[in-house]
Design a protein around this nucleic acid. Structure first.
Lengths: 271, 271
DNA sequence: ACATAGCTTGCGGATTACGCAAGAAGACAG
DNA sequence: CTGTCTTCTTGCGTAATCCGCAAGCTATGT
């Protein structure tokens, strides 16, 4: 653009493709995201800092969100936290049904490709909820527990779902009660869980070394949405005899591949 | 302002009180609400009809919401349904903790006023999750199960949480499997549950006539947010000997009063 | 009491979003 | 396969809306 004949410096080329976003709405949603991301109430000042928008605009946007119940103030204070509307909306929807609809194909694919039972789970509160499963065609196979709640700290799915939490979050989640031991391998300390989580983040998958049930090994990977948040987990389970650790690398790659595909599907179910 | 020199007819008086809302954001949130309210995918046309906004504006707003993952299109079709972001946000937050923080006082008040155990519950998937409880000072009292998942169809809390569902929704929730019978009084047919729900809506509270456990009667009422959606339930439990049906009216009124107070607190925790 | 930090509100300008209307893209019937 | 009809998508000009500045205000701490 050598000449630059434009009087006012126009934003960008803004080609015909790509409908432009509505600025105020977009900003409002960013505020929601930011508040949700932080686990402590957020002050107006820090919102302006993070978003780089003027104080007054942030105030008015946040105020609008508050009026509709998407944000709220804690009993005493001006800081913002998520309001009940967010929860209301999410409750109306049966996410597990939506997820299993989207992921069903992939789950079958995974189970079929390695011929072991595959599971799909989400986190519900302090439990892993097993949304769906697809069995293997072995005489001996891990039976699926669709609809079951299992502990988070001693299953591969549970650990995958927790992968992004830091020590503080883990401690607040599990409280002061010691983690219940189900087998001799069960991880019972939060400290160890912290290490496990950081390992998941670098390696991308996690195994369950007979931590939930003797004789059963599992391998799972987190499913992340476009924004990178963990929203579910997918993995496989098999008797130890048929699932020695030297298969981990291969299975891990497979599981992670499927996890990524599902994440992409969830992110943008168009074009 | 005796002269009223304004050329363009200004909207309303717009007094100093009440910060005005940002229109586009407000509209976007209305769209979210509308989509969530409907349990079938919503077309652009019906959105414009419901909201009374121009087609193009709705399109661009919805598009913005879609980009941020708050809306999505089903695999094939242009209709809108809720996107994963809504779920993501709600997951980040520990609603049970927030709720119990807000309601703790009231729960204590309720338990104290009638000297029986009071419970606070929310729905998590297809279970009632008991968020908090407050015990009574009796030798024999119903012990509290904070942190427990209980069935929806045979507890007063569960039924209160389901009160607004219609037959279709109830059937899709419970599926084809018959409702498990826990006592001789347990409601085992969806048809009966439908009647029970309509009764709750008119009467405002519901009892559990030893449907979950022999010898225990409960009474619960739904907690509704500002918009009227059921978001939680509160109620009391006692041995039948101490809680005959002629106490229902008094206890019912008490429980409903507290439920309303909590709902108001959640809706607007300011002024 | 004063000072400081953070929240709230007026105000004017111009960017932004709105609505109209025309243009695609399908859906459906003949 | 073609024409008609519905529904979604995009240009464009207008002006209303929203943005940022800067000044009030409220609360907190010294």
């Amino acid at each position: 653009m050598p000449n630059a004949p434009l009087a006012t410096t126009r934003r960008v080329k803004r080609t015909l493709l790509e409908t432009p976003s509505i600025q105020s709405l977009d900003r409002g949603l960013m505020i929601l995201d930011t508040v949700a991301k932080s686990r402590v109430p957020v002050s107006l000042a820090s919102l302006t800092a993070v978003l780089g928008i003027d104080r007054s605009s942030v105030f008015r946007l946040a105020n609008t969100l508050k009026r509709r119940g998407f944000l709220a103030n804690p009993s005493s204070g001006k800081e913002y936290l998520l309001g009940t509307s967010v929860w209301r909306l999410s409750q109306k929807y049966d996410w597990s049904r939506m997820l299993s609809a989207v992921a069903q194909e992939h789950l079958k694919l995974l189970a079929g490709s390695i011929n072991e039972t595959a599971h799909l789970a989400i986190r519900e509160g302090s439990k892993a909820f097993f949304v769906d499963h697809c069995g293997a065609r072995h005489v001996i196979a891990i039976s699926g527990q669709s609809g079951e709640f299992l502990p988070l700290h001693c299953t591969s799915h549970g650990k995958a779902l927790l992968a992004d939490l830091d020590e503080k979050e883990l401690r607040s989640l599990f409280g002061d009660t010691p983690l219940p031991r189900l087998t001799k391998n069960t991880i019972v300390s939060v400290a160890e869980l912290v290490r496990e989580c950081s390992r998941i983040r670098t390696r991308g998958y996690v195994t369950d070394e007979e931590e939930y049930m003797d004789g059963v090994r599992c391998l799972a990977a987190p499913i992340r949405d476009q924004a990178g948040y963990i929203i579910a987990s997918i993995g496989v389970s098999a008797p130890v005899a048929r699932f020695p650790p030297d298969l981990d690398k291969e299975y891990g790659a497979r599981v992670m591949g499927i996890a990524q595909q599902i994440g992409e599907l969830l992110g943008s179910p168009l074009p």
